[in-house]
């Protein structure tokens, strides 16, 4: 939910001047947090707020000092909800404290520098990017913003996918490295250890008309 709110074009425009980073902790004592994050977070008032939920957003200046903090789950504004925040309003407050100039809306199709990438060898693509989305609005993990998984591929792994003069079938198993990322493994970290294991049947490979 927090990522979905941060992903709106309006919030992206507000966040452009920032370096963005995130940290997750599954431990009660935060032992698995990066030490620098643990220090910043445990000193914050947010971490002690009795109305806190589990997502927190902190703004630091270029010297690493916290200048603003707010609850990370979206919600708030006129219908203020304890433990939640209006992300746009809070980021604007942070920008004012930092004396940043007013944001200028930019094209939605700008360069995607944050997209996971692979470096490959000459002669064939390094791999593929899989965009995985859970499309059921009734599912708590529904989001229009896809998860991106990168799968590296060697030259010989591309051969089965070479365009045939006529449609032919390939074994679904040959695309195992892609298919293991089908939801939920591709989205939910807890399910990464329980990926789909068996792929049977065939897929038809045909040249489409562009």
């Amino acid at each position: 939910m927090a990522r979905g709110s941060l992903a709106s074009p309006a919030v992206v425009d507000l966040l452009r001047p920032f370096i963005i980073t995130a940290a997750h902790s599954g431990e009660e004592d935060l032992a698995d947090l990066e030490p620098a994050v643990r220090e910043v977070f445990t000193k914050s008032d947010l971490s002690k707020d009795p109305n806190r939920l589990n997502v927190f957003m902190l703004v630091l200046d270029s010297q690493g000092r916290v200048v603003h903090e707010f609850h990370g789950l979206p919600g708030g504004g006129r219908a203020a909800v304890l433990g939640r925040s209006d992300h746009q309003a809070e980021i604007r407050i942070a920008r004012a404290k930092l004396k940043l100039p007013e944001e200028k809306p930019q094209k939605a199709d700008g360069p995607l520098k944050g997209l996971p990438d692979l470096k490959g060898q000459a002669g064939h693509p390094a791999g593929v990017r899989l965009f995985i989305r859970q499309d059921d609005p009734s599912n708590s993990h529904f989001s229009q913003v896809p998860v991106v998984e990168i799968v590296s591929m060697k030259a010989d792994e591309w051969k089965p996918l070479s365009f045939p003069p006529r449609a032919r079938e390939i074994e679904a198993e040959s695309l195992r490295s892609w298919l293991v990322w089908l939801y939920p493994a591709g989205v939910r970290t807890a399910d990464e250890q329980r990926r789909f294991q068996k792929f049977s049947g065939t897929l038809k490979l045909a040249r489409g008309i562009g």
Binding site: I20, T21, A22, H24, S25, N54, L58, G72
Partner: peptide, 25 residues
């Protein structure tokens, strides 16, 4: 941030294993 004189936006998620950047929850 220090090199480029830019602010930082930090998100901390508790009770969760994941990666907000990639979208894993």
């Amino acid at each position: 941030a220090a090199r480029e004189v830019r602010p930082i936006f930090l998100v901390v998620v508790r009770n969760s294993f994941g990666d907000l950047c990639s979208g894993h929850c």
